[in-house]
Design a protein around this nucleic acid. Sequence first.
DNA 1: CGCTTCCATACGTCCAATATATGAATTCAC
DNA 2: GTGAATTCATATATTGGACGTATGGAAGCG
Lengths: 304, 304
Amino acid sequence: MELRHLRYFVAVADEGHFTRAAKRLGIGQPPLSLQIQQLERELGVLLFRRLPRGVALSEAGRAFADDARRILRDVDRAGEHARRVASGELGRIRVGMINSAPFHPLIPQVIREFRRRYPNVAFSLEERSTPALAAAVRDDAVDVAFVRPIHGSSEGLDTETIVDEDMLVALPAGHALAGRRQIPLLALSIEPFVLFPRTVGAGLHDEIVAACRRAGFSPRVVQEASQVTSIVNLIASGLGVSILPGSMQHMHTDGVVFRPIARPIPKARLSLIWRHADRDAPQLVRLRELIRELAPVSRRGRRA
Amino acid sequence: MELRHLRYFVAVADEGHFTRAAKRLGIGQPPLSLQIQQLERELGVLLFRRLPRGVALSEAGRAFADDARRILRDVDRAGEHARRVASGELGRIRVGMINSAPFHPLIPQVIREFRRRYPNVAFSLEERSTPALAAAVRDDAVDVAFVRPIHGSSEGLDTETIVDEDMLVALPAGHALAGRRQIPLLALSIEPFVLFPRTVGAGLHDEIVAACRRAGFSPRVVQEASQVTSIVNLIASGLGVSILPGSMQHMHTDGVVFRPIARPIPKARLSLIWRHADRDAPQLVRLRELIRELAPVSRRGRRA
DNA sequence: CGCTTCCATACGTCCAATATATGAATTCAC
DNA sequence: GTGAATTCATATATTGGACGTATGGAAGCG
């Protein structure tokens, strides 16, 4: 059976008349008769009662006509559906993000705008650490993720830098250094540090440690916390100081003050990663277009 | 687009591999590639990502694969559905019947057995007068009807006699004639009759009047009632006597007694009618088979 | 770097869908 | 009742397109 049989059958059912149906289909009457006979033979069912003046659906024909019409409609819709998914208007996107990402104003803005523009794209959001996100993208558990610099291999992943923000020093509110407009890193050499464990934030961790080394000291870590929000809270509790992505000052936590770092300023990069193999997935392409549109100018690397 | 495209597409989607899919389909790889390309061109959408090692569905391809599988399943089901309707296993039948029919034991038995055998056939039942039923069948308001003899034209209708039962005299319980084992019609010549109006039961009405005429008198009608059940109740109330189909004694109404009529015994025929044009409608054929199976031997007439 | 794998392209073949011509059954006109 | 008209079925010819065979080309692998 082919869709041709269904199309011809529905035409005859509509017209109740082979000759008229054939004309409507733009073919001759004999081939139409043959196709219908072929369909009836394949089904093992007489679909029409042949009358002196045209034809009428049999009981089985009536049932089959309903099904055939629905199938033909479904075929049309399937094509339309595929086109809409391909255009990025429909479908899904699973987004992962590092804990600190939502504090950069660009990220909520991008998400809000994406959902507004593509309301028919199922949008899911997940927060994890950068290494966990890299693995999730690789394993096809999420399609795209906002991450901090990746330490290990990023084989099979494409990367695009979204923002490269200045890091700030985060101090308990009453801290001696809180009065300074700008803080040279060396001033922190004797301070107790609150940092990520290296396992969850190796990239940023190394960046911070390297900056301290360049300034001439090795940070003394007294407390670790996996999530940047926890770090801020620990600082607020007076446990120590830290160096954090600038956007974290949007967390507005009482008891914590952020101060610029004297040059050279260490940078916290926020990047987007996705599977290279799925680089053309329509929803991903739409998301990247949107970021490019909303983001301040930023350099971009590809295929890390 | 043809179902071939969908079948081929699903095979490739399943295998993730043109060559293997082609083998499974029993065709060569090049024609398969061409058919898929043709489908992609028609949809205006790339359904597969071509990988070094086989192919993978694109986002749109994934969506289309779901739809395609459903459509192919629906096509199979539509065929099966049509076959089941054609076999009489599925579908509907609208049955009409004259008020007196359910009192003949065969009728409830037939209906019960039909519903038991064909539980998936939607069965509707309607009671009307014989002329109304003939019109309803003709107008395709019911598919088949149990009727008493039809007076007027039965153009376009087929008829089959179901039973040809003896008529009985129905008397009020205390009636003088109630003591007799058998009643010659002439004994009723002075009795008041309760009969159908001729308009609703012309066939049976004429049969009764003719029988009386043969016996040598003209019945004196004192009361008319359109439904046979009403006639029985009027007799029970003592308003008169009547001549009724024998099966009406199954109504078991207090105050009415039934007595056989002396030869020649007038007959009340119960027939099935249906549209000649729909004589092969599967549910009708099944019903007639069933009646033939359950009915006592009976003569049959065709194409009245 | 050659071998393998796998999809795409090129081209010839053949079946099946279509066209044309005609037949058969029924209706309609008169 | 006979001839014309209508309409679906059948017969035969034609052709487009699906398929097969051969080959190319890109990528991975040892």
